[in-house]
Simulated assay, not measured.
Amino acid sequence: MGRLLYPEDHPLAQQLKCGVLCRIFPLQDDARAFLFLAFDQPLLAPAVLRSVAQIIAEKLHDAMTELISRERTAVELKNIINQYRILFDRAPVLMNCFDKHNRCTLWNGECERVFGWTLEEVNREADPLALFYPDPEVRQRVRASINTSPSLEMHEWYPQRRDGAVLATLWSNIILSDGEIMNIGVDITERKRAENLLAFQATTDALTRCYNRLAILDHLQTSLDNCQAEDSETHFALVMIDLDHFKKINDQWGHAAGDDALVYFCQCIREQCEGQPRLGRLGGEEFLLLLPVSDPGEAIAFTDRLRAQFFAAPFTMADASLTLSFSAGVLVVCQPHDERAVLLTLVDNALYDAKRTGRGKTIVASLTQ
């Protein structure tokens, strides 16, 4: 059954004499469309009108199909853009862009979380990069990396966050299709902290906080390698030190007191050192000190000052005090020498002679022995 297009009393209803109704093919499951051609006078060739209407209907169908397709594409594109925007903002990596005028144009959520500034706050600064890199020279290198010489290789930078803490970060740069450079970074502060802790633990004696045996011997080898360099003026003294009567401290007051005595012993050595000494624990109560001096007399003077300090400030325990004593062997290296084992044997023999002849003294070894 049909439906009236207009009520009978409508002006157009009085004017219409004939018409052709043509269905436009379904555009989608829930949409229907029709084409109606109305005329104000009767026509003698309705079949021709139906053919014309069908042709017009087909054209309209094609046009509307294309329009719907475009709308669908626009919706899909909008959804994709929204997805990428969410990805950009929520990605657990640092992403930002700075233009040629040093203004920040992109600043994702991870940047705001890690550094503590919003995009608006960053761009309030005359030079936004100064917030992160107060040092002008460092800032210039960073600016070059994001403006003139971007690289896909990861580079380590140490920016400052809002609270003043310095971060360790890795950055690479990607040139986008419009020529803008996107900076992609990762905050590795915690990882670096863990690496530094592991490195510290691998090279440090847990009790005394001086170098362990392996680390101090590596430093000795490095010093010897430096002596081999042409025109090298490297010179240093090996001072091997052994705390006298340490077993008695453990036996009389316990191992905890013995540990405290070793800690105090190392603390006094550091206080007497000048320049850049390197102190390592070889084992037990025996230590090796690399002292930057060129004359055996300077090394002997160092051990004399150390003994005077122990005499002036005895090691104190809960109910007693003890003046620590030590024996030492000294060997000065002023010329190229690549036999680390030979040097250690010579200075160890000098230490043994000091202990054998009464302790509490320093014996100087010679490379000519």
Rank of each mutant, 00 (worst) to 15 (best):
L343V: 00
Y264W: 15
Q140R: 15
R340D: 02
C227H: 06
T234H: 09
C210Y: 04
T73Q: 14
T65A: 15
A13Y: 09
E195H: 11
F310I: 02
L43D: 09
Y84F: 13
A33H: 06
V364W: 01
Q160C: 09
P128L: 01
E71T: 10
P277V: 03
W157G: 02
R113T: 09
I269K: 00
G280S: 09
A257F: 11
A199I: 11
S51K: 12
P92L: 12
R90I: 03
N79K: 11
G179S: 10
D9M: 05
V293S: 03
Y158K: 08
S172Q: 08
N349W: 05
L279N: 00
H10V: 00
I300C: 12
I68S: 04
V138Y: 09
G284F: 03
V342Q: 14
H101F: 11
V364P: 01
L322E: 11
A126L: 14
C334Q: 09
P128W: 00
Y84S: 10
D353P: 00
G275W: 04
E298T: 06
Q41I: 02
P26H: 10
I80G: 06
D319N: 14
C104P: 01
D187V: 01
F236P: 06
L243W: 05
M64D: 02
E125R: 05
V20F: 07
Q369I: 03
D40T: 11
P277T: 02
Y6L: 10
D178R: 05
R3Q: 12
L343R: 02
N183W: 02
L262P: 00
D218Q: 14
Y352F: 12
V138T: 12
E298N: 08
A301V: 02
C111T: 03
L282H: 08
V330Q: 03
A47E: 14
A365R: 01
N212W: 08
S327H: 03
H155F: 13
L129W: 06
L224P: 03
R124L: 07
H235V: 02
T65D: 13
E121H: 07
D295Q: 13
F287R: 02
Q221V: 07
S177Y: 10
A38L: 14
H255Y: 11
A45F: 14
C97F: 07
V186Y: 07
T203K: 07
A312Q: 13
L289S: 00
L5C: 11
G109N: 06
D295F: 12
R23D: 13
L351K: 01
T323C: 12
Q28L: 09
Q221Y: 13
I269C: 04
